[in-house]
């Protein structure tokens, strides 16, 4: 008799990590579809390149670490990392830079710490952050939606907003510019809506739980709304922040990476709120146009501390 079978429980649900990962990939399809609609087929090329590079790095790392390669490649976790990175960067990013980012994400952020389940930082965001500080120009120029992507790159709405505010333009003057759409950025608001749709699917399938997304969105919206009420000329509205940049992708797909997130329900509320607040602070006062990647990485640092102080009360133990 199989030794593992001899021990209770004798049956498990069989909802496996690969199934979790492929559900996440499925939920990213709307984002990819909107990007393709806005920018042509290049986002698809980016996802493909990132996936191939990430799979190759994963195989290499597993081989070097003398682990069995096939089961780990099939678990799909590396594809989620690759897809998140590819969808977070501008479609105009040179392919070799994207490949570099994917390599850093898989080799440095994931396998250097011991592979699946061991990484303290979100691998996709490490890759993104490395690219952002290495290639600031390429990483902050997004193509104008609908046009020929290589001809009409320009600053993003968040970037325009920050530069404009520095130059003492008012919100109304800045938002009249071409980078702004109905609520957020011209193309960005559709990408955010697609990410929201995918995120709601994940919530419905219970792949992610509500704590982190809700806390993160609240962490952005509450301070944004407060400052907008008191000084509408110098601060964008909460709805703009929610629909701009990587807000929704971050809230439902990036911050919810369980490996690098806090692990108790209360801890996840703190963690999510921290990411939201930091994102807003970096957007409002920081040196980078969007703050999701750095906010996630900073809160990753705080996870051991959060986990330590948010252990839930145990049955039969008072206090």
């Amino acid at each position: 008799m199989d030794a593992a079978l001899a021990q209770p429980p004798h049956v498990i649900a069989g909802f496996t990590v690969p199934r979790v990962m492929f559900q996440v990939l499925g939920a990213l399809l709307p984002v990819l579809a909107v990007q393709i609609h806005l920018f042509g087929l290049r986002p698809l090329l980016l996802v493909a390149v990132a996936a191939i590079v990430a799979l190759a790095c994963e195989a290499l790392a597993l081989h070097l670490r003398q682990r069995s390669v096939r089961p780990s490649l099939r678990d799909g976790s590396v594809l989620v990392t690759a897809a998140l990175l590819a969808l977070a960067v501008p479609p105009t990013l040179p392919l070799w830079q994207l490949a570099l980012g994917a390599t850093v994400a898989v080799l440095l952020a994931k396998h250097a710490y011991g592979g699946l389940g061991q990484n303290p930082f979100n691998p996709a965001m490490v890759g993104y952050a490395v690219l952002l500080v290495s290639f600031p120009l390429e990483m902050t120029r997004w193509p104008a939606p609908g046009g020929a992507w290589d001809a009409m790159t320009g600053a993003t709405a968040l970037d325009t907003l920050r530069t404009g505010l520095r130059q003492s333009y008012t919100m109304q003057e800045i938002q009249a510019g071409p980078a702004f759409g109905h609520i957020g950025a011209t193309g960005g608001e559709w990408i955010n809506l697609a990410a929201l749709a995918g995120g709601l699917y994940l919530l419905a399938r219970r792949i992610v739980r509500w704590h982190i997304p809700l806390a993160m969105l609240a962490g952005i919206a509450v301070p944004a709304a407060l400052f907008h009420v008191f000084d509408p000329g110098a601060h964008a509205s909460a709805s703009f922040h929610l629909a701009a940049g990587a807000t929704m992708l971050g809230a439902f797909f990036i911050a919810t990476d369980p490996v690098s997130a806090a692990t108790s329900d209360r801890g996840r509320l703190v963690y999510g709120a921290g990411i939201g607040l930091l994102t807003w602070i970096i957007r409002a006062w920081g040196a980078f146009p969007d703050g999701v990647a750095f906010a996630v990485l900073i809160m990753n640092l705080a996870v051991p501390l959060i986990d330590r102080y948010t252990v839930p009360r145990i049955y039969g133990h008072s206090g």
């Binding site: 979790v20 089961p71 976790s77 699946l116 389940g117 739980r209 369980p258």
Partner: peptide
């Protein structure tokens, strides 16, 4: 049972 994999802290 499926083969054991690393914990992903899904909670």
């Amino acid at each position: 049972r499926a083969a054991e994999m690393p914990c992903i802290r899904c909670g």
